[in-house]
């Protein structure tokens, strides 16, 4: 059996991913795993170094790239400013458009008055409520009150108040 093909495979990966104390503890005491981790780590280290070297560019390249980015950024700023400059013109045009439409014949707003029938019925209801409130006797006891008035020959009990209220509301 190859020393690389051991039963502790996941522990090597876990240790390489990092921060796994159990894996680290095992590898510290297991020689085949230690060798295996070193081999993989070395390959990964070479991979990283080779790629960093490959991506390396001369200073002139970075200067040129920074220059292109600055040009693109300035063009973007100019575009946004041009768009912002257009906004007031568009607003003025819209306002003019609304003003012209507002003056067109047949578009004037008409004042809406409340329906006459509704005002009358409201007024009548109010008069009715005040009249009922002004009575000295409730409506249900009115026949009894009449009988008392008739027998005593007095004037009607509600007559004065009612006539006053009627006058105040019906005016």
């Amino acid at each position: 059996m190859n020393s690389n093909e051991n039963a502790h495979d996941p522990l090597v990966e876990q240790a390489l991913v990092g921060f796994d104390l159990a894996a680290e503890h095992h590898i510290a005491h297991c020689e085949p795993c230690q060798t295996e981790r070193e081999k993989v780590a070395e390959a990964l280290c070479r991979f990283g170094a080779a790629n960093r070297e490959y991506a390396n560019r001369p200073n002139s390249f970075w200067e040129q790239q920074a220059e292109s980015i600055r040009a693109a950024q300035q063009a973007s700023v100019r575009r946004s400013r041009a768009t912002l400059a257009l906004v007031p013109s568009v607003v003025v045009l819209l306002l003019l458009g609304f003003a012209v439409l507002g003056r067109a014949p047949g578009v004037r707003p008409v004042a809406v008055a409340p329906p006459l029938a509704q005002t009358d019925s409201d007024h009548e209801l109010l008069v009715g409520v005040e009249r009922a409130m002004g009575r000295r006797t409730p409506l249900a006891l009115e026949p009894a009150t009449l009988m008392v008035e008739e027998s005593s020959g007095n004037e009607p009990l509600n007559s004065t108040d009612e006539s006053k209220e009627r006058r105040s509301h019906e005016n």
Binding site: N51, A55, R57, A66, I69, Q73, Q74
Partner: peptide, 22 residues
């Protein structure tokens, strides 16, 4: 400002470019 942004580009462009290249 544009100068400050330029400084940021110069500081980080190598890493950003390398990552994108990979």
């Amino acid at each position: 400002t544009a100068e400050e942004f330029d400084a940021i580009v110069r500081r980080h462009q190598r890493r950003v470019h390398r990552f994108l290249l990979m």
